[in-house]
């Protein structure tokens, strides 16, 4: 007797002979099992039917798209054109998506004068508009902490203040991506969807990120954001000047973060948050340029970085006047 034949009583019911269950007795039980399996599969199909949105929203080209670093110039042009078309279809806005690369020899750094910042929040508004953030939740890459004078302990701070600013007993500390030289978010990413570029900016390939949010857990500065839903922006509010690694509208389910407005700064302009700041608290520039403002600050002010003990080596500095 061949070993793959079961030790079972001979078949008594031919009703299910049409079911091709090899090596199984053709009994009523087998027929019922087949029927139960069919019903179960049908119910499963019905249950996961909402997932039809994946093939509807994710084209084959997008599904198969390679990592940013593996795209040739030709590939990039095709990808950018596809993304622009999709933005036109979904948001009704005509946009151009570019691939601004680091300027050789440039390393960016940012500094904030905590004596000047008064917590007015214009930087957050500018970030929201410039970077095509989801409008529903006033998303921004910046959080402004209202800190109690006499303490640098963040536990005594608040980001949800709504009263007039500045308050006499408070000072204000904006926090955004610190563009660490030793970024924990890049270390932990399992798929290399985020990396540090030569000019110091940590970027995300939104089309490669799998949305595991490990980087969000790893970041000590709450600098990363997740797209919990598809961003909603009115067509006339979409910023059409977009970068692939920066402010293009991000897909639902992926991570994003402050990129020092690289689509502006790599073209010689200043970050949107700096331009919007009415107090002049923000200083941005090329740390390798001896004549830059940022270099003057680092040389002449006593600056500090947040959570220095973690060894993240931020490119983002804070200082006070006098």
């Amino acid at each position: 007797m061949p070993s793959n034949e079961p030790h079972v009583p001979p078949a008594t019911n031919k009703a299910s002979a049409s079911l091709p269950i090899i090596g199984q007795p053709s009994t009523r039980r087998t027929a019922l099992k087949g029927a139960a399996l069919t019903l179960g599969l049908a119910a499963f199909g019905k249950a996961i039917w909402p997932m039809i949105s994946i093939p509807e929203n994710v084209s084959l080209d997008e599904f198969l798209q390679q990592h940013y670093k593996e795209l040739s110039a030709d590939d990039k042009q095709k990808v950018f054109a596809r993304l622009a078309t999709e933005t036109k279809e979904k948001y009704g806005a005509k946009v151009t998506i570019n691939d601004q690369r680091p300027i050789p020899g440039v390393k960016f750094a940012y500094a904030i004068n905590l004596s000047k910042c008064n917590g007015n929040g214009k930087c957050m508004e500018a970030c929201n508009i410039e970077n095509n953030h989801h409008r529903g939740v006033d998303q921004s890459y910046i959080r402004v902490l209202e800190m109690t004078k006499g303490s640098m302990e963040m536990e005594h701070g608040s980001t949800t203040y709504t009263h007039d600013v500045p308050q006499d007993d408070k000072f204000y500390m904006p926090v955004q991506c610190q563009q660490c030289d030793n970024p924990p978010c890049v270390t932990v990413c399992p798929v290399e969807a985020t990396w540090k570029e030569e000019d110091g900016i940590v970027v995300v390939d939104y089309n490669w990120c799998i949305g595991c949010r490990y980087c969000e857990a790893a970041c000590p500065y709450h600098a990363r954001r997740f797209n919990w839903e598809q961003p909603e922006i009115a067509a006339e509010e979409v910023n059409p000047n977009q970068g692939y690694l920066s402010n293009r509208i991000r897909p639902q389910g992926t991570m994003e973060k402050c990129h020092f407005c690289l689509h502006r700064t790599r073209e010689g302009r200043l970050p949107a948050c700096l331009e919007a700041c009415p107090t002049g608290a923000r200083v941005f520039g090329n740390i390798n340029d001896p004549d830059s403002d940022i270099n003057w600050i680092l040389k002449n002010k006593r600056v500090f970085v947040l959570k220095e003990e973690l060894g993240t080596e931020p490119s983002f500095f804070y200082f006070f006047d006098s």
């Binding site: 990120c209 799998i210 949305g211």
Partner: peptide, 12 residues
């Protein structure tokens, strides 16, 4: 279940 983009699992 925790992935924001489960269809990109192949990146892993």
């Amino acid at each position: 279940a925790d992935l924001g983009k489960p269809e990109r699992f192949w990146h892993l």
